[in-house]
């Protein structure tokens, strides 16, 4: 049952990610991301990471995706431009090929080096309860500095955005 769900959601992630990568319409790409993000959230739920799953929905769907779509829609004429496809030139083709190959090899290497792939624990005990309490405790103790720095960075970003958006009438 859970496995079937996993495969459904995995197929959804891969399918919509493929749409994002291969579609010619840039807005389709943006909307296909919705399903990718949602599928990832579903996988988090299957992994008993409920807080992470809801954060994924909230931050990626509610925040980042809306921003992307707005950016695409409000930029003049981007929404109707077809992304070019086909052969763009020999030099760029070779460079892109080399980079892709390197990345690919690196990921395969990484995959075989990762401890959880080499010897996956046979019976993982998924937490029965919500992860929110331990997460909160960890954020407020072990990772307090990172947490605070992140919030300061966000605050700076907000102030910066407000400054840029202000009308300069001097």
């Amino acid at each position: 049952m859970l496995e079937a769900l996993f495969y459904i959601f995995a197929a959804m992630i891969i399918g919509s990610a493929a749409v994002t990568a291969f579609t010619k319409n840039i807005l389709y790409a943006a909307f296909a991301l919705l399903f990718t993000f949602f599928g990832v959230a579903a996988i988090y739920v299957l992994l008993s990471a409920d807080f992470l799953a809801i954060s994924q929905i909230m931050i990626y769907i509610g925040g980042i995706l809306v921003l992307i779509i707005f950016g695409v829609m409000l930029t003049t004429n981007v929404s109707i431009v077809d992304i070019k496809e086909g052969f763009t030139g020999k030099t760029s083709f070779i460079i892109a090929g080399i980079f892709s190959a390197i990345t690919c090899i690196f990921f395969i290497y990484l995959a075989f080096k990762m401890p959880f792939i080499n010897h996956a624990p046979k019976d993982v005990k998924l937490p029965n309860d919500s992860t929110i309490k331990p997460l909160g405790k960890l954020l407020m103790t072990n990772y307090l500095l990172a947490f605070e720095v992140a919030s300061v960075v966000l605050l700076i970003a907000i102030i910066g955005a407000a400054m840029i958006a202000r009308r300069h009438d001097d």
Partner: peptide
């Protein structure tokens, strides 16, 4: 689920999309 309130808040974004 233990995160009811947070969940309601998050799925509101579906409507936006």
């Amino acid at each position: 689920i233990n995160l009811g309130l947070f969940f309601v808040f998050a799925v509101g974004s579906f409507a936006v999309i």
